[in-house]
């Protein structure tokens, strides 16, 4: 990479004097780390995915594209389920996160900082411990299940196929709820920073210009909070689609996600080429999905 030409700008002169080497020196350690431990492993993963052999006799690069065909034909349903779960969970966090972010940003007064801390604080309790707590919350004999049964919500969930056996645990519903719970703060924080910057007078102005409640939201508030929505959905969707903790702890054999398959192919079955092919498919799918999404949302400058 070349670092020769600093572009125009007010800061230029003061910096240009120090020479072009400065940014390179500053970047060197981080770049080195990213290249050696991210780019190289990704290439190594790609190469692994095209190899044949077994763990005892070693693997050889044979450009065996069949690994990909195998991976897709055997596990397409887990891929589909992972992206489906991730999409539903992302929409769920958005729906839940928006009012909370708005409440903290504009209605919490002097409790603002405290509420932000409460959103972040759960991070400091290990997420596995917190996910295990959902086993207690959603247990058959608990008040939540009793409430769902009393209000007929269990029947509704069962009717759409999200739960079965008249219970909440170990179901699609439990896994998706766990995903929503785990990634909600990742949605709330970027939403908060976008919504907080939003000038409420604009909403009044929209009202002045005859916008009703819905149009105020849809034509003014939503577009202005879009940067937060985009980064929040990315921060939720990407890790959620690769997650398997929730499906393993809160799900059943019908909720297996692709991360679970990759994990077991790598660490238990030791079928490295297949596992690598699965990883690579997951990575490429996410890059394609995210790329399309970012383009559609029209925010190129994300990071």
């Amino acid at each position: 990479m070349a670092f020769a030409v600093p572009s125009r700008g007010a800061r230029r002169t003061a910096k240009a004097r120090r020479g072009f080497a400065t940014p390179l020196i500053l970047l060197a350690p981080a770049l080195l780390w990213l290249i050696v431990f991210f780019i190289v492993p990704t290439i190594s993963l790609a190469s692994q995915s095209l190899q044949t052999g077994d763990i005892d006799n070693g693997y050889v690069l044979t450009w065996h594209f069949q690994n990909y065909a195998d991976a897709l034909s055997r596990y397409w349903s887990q891929f589909a389920r992972s992206f489906g779960y991730a999409a539903i969970a992302t929409i769920g966090t958005l729906i839940l996160g928006y009012p909370l972010a708005w409440f903290i940003a504009h209605r919490s007064g002097r409790f603002k900082t405290m509420l932000l801390v409460l959103v972040v604080a759960p991070f400091f309790t290990n997420f596995l411990i917190r996910t295990l707590a959902w086993l207690i919350i959603l247990t058959d004999s608990g008040p939540v299940t009793a409430f769902f049964r009393a209000t007929g919500l269990t029947n509704l969930l069962q009717a759409v196929g999200l739960t079965d056996n008249n219970s909440l645990l170990f179901s699609h519903f439990a896994v998706i709820s766990g995903l929503i719970y785990n990634f909600l703060p990742f949605m709330v924080l970027p939403l908060y920073s976008s919504i907080e910057r939003l000038d409420l007078r604009l909403v009044d102005a929209a009202g002045d210009l005859y916008a009703n409640g819905w149009n105020k939201f849809w034509k003014v508030i939503w577009p202005l909070s879009l940067p937060g929505v985009v980064s929040g959905t990315l921060l939720t969707f990407i890790p959620a689609s690769g997650d398997y903790i929730n499906s393993k702890l809160l799900g059943n054999t019908q909720t297996v996600m692709i991360g679970q398959v990759i994990d077991s192919q790598f660490l238990r079955v030791l079928n490295y080429p297949l596992a690598a092919a699965l990883s690579f498919i997951l990575m490429i799918s996410i890059i394609v999905l995210v790329g399309a999404y970012v383009r559609a949302a029209g925010t190129e400058e994300l990071v």
Binding site: L45, I238, G242, D243, L282
Partner: peptide, 15 residues
């Protein structure tokens, strides 16, 4: 940041 942990973990393992 756009790479799922399971992919990052497994690619590092292969390295």
């Amino acid at each position: 940041m756009a790479t799922p942990e399971v992919v990052m973990g497994s690619s590092l393992l292969t390295l």
